[in-house]
Computed example of a mutant assay.
Amino acid sequence: MRVGVPIFLFLAAAGFHTALTASLESAEKEDTFGDEVGLEQLSDLQKRDQEEFEAAQMSEAVQDENTEEENDTQEEDMNRDGNVEADQHESESDEDVDGMRQKREHLEANVEEADETTNLAEVE
């Protein structure tokens, strides 16, 4: 029995050492595999984020262009409306000038008639 106990202890220690070594190697493999998978997943996430970022920039650029085109269209409409108003104002001004011209001609005619009447009255 005395010989059996040391052999048993030796075999137990060797088994424990083998089990511990296998466990550590397994853990290292899992960590390495986890890091590799993590890096792949991380790079996939980075790629997706980059694609989403680029897509967002493109959509913002398109929106900016659309907004700019709308502003240009609105400015053109405002200019066109302003030109129409200016034309209407000019027409009104022309009408006012024509009206004033007619009044002046009418007054001149009245003055001439008054002068003729005065001249006739002086002649008589």
Rank of each mutant, 00 (worst) to 15 (best):
G82I: 12
E76G: 13
I7C: 07
H17I: 06
T117E: 10
N110P: 00
L24M: 12
A61W: 07
M78L: 10
A12H: 01
K103W: 00
T67A: 07
E60H: 00
H89C: 02
L39K: 12
S23P: 06
E65G: 07
A109T: 00
V84H: 04
E28V: 06
T67K: 08
E68M: 14
E85Q: 10
E28K: 05
V62K: 14
R104I: 14
Q102L: 15
E90A: 08
A27I: 03
V97A: 08
A22T: 09
D77P: 03
E85Y: 03
Q46R: 01
R104W: 01
A13R: 07
G99M: 05
V37S: 09
A27Q: 13
K47Y: 08
T67P: 01
D115S: 11
N119L: 15
D81Q: 13
E52P: 00
L107E: 01
E52M: 05
D98G: 08
A14S: 06
D81Y: 07
A27L: 12
Q41I: 04
L20H: 12
L107D: 00
A13N: 05
V97C: 01
A114F: 02
E51P: 09
F16M: 05
D72L: 15
T21F: 08
D81T: 14
S26I: 04
M100A: 08
E68Q: 14
E68K: 15
E92P: 05
A56E: 15
G34R: 15
Q74G: 07
E108T: 12
R101Q: 02
D77N: 09
V97M: 04
L120I: 03
Q102W: 05
V62D: 10
L20A: 10
I7S: 11
A56S: 09
E122K: 08
E54Y: 07
S59P: 00
E25W: 02
G4P: 00
Q57F: 06
E105T: 11
V123K: 03
E51M: 04
T117Q: 04
D98N: 03
A13Q: 10
E122S: 06
N79E: 04
M100R: 12
A55F: 04
A109K: 15
L45F: 05
E105C: 14
M78I: 14
S93A: 13
H106S: 07
F53Q: 06
E65W: 10
L39W: 09
T18M: 10
E95N: 07
P6Y: 09
H17W: 10
A109Y: 06
T73S: 11
A86H: 01
N119K: 13
A55H: 06
V62G: 06
E116R: 12
K29H: 08
Q46M: 12
G82R: 02
G38D: 09
G38P: 00
E60C: 02
R101H: 03
Q50E: 14
S26E: 02
V5S: 04
E70A: 15
R48N: 14
G38V: 11
A114I: 02
S26N: 07
T21N: 01
T32F: 15
H89Y: 03
D44C: 11
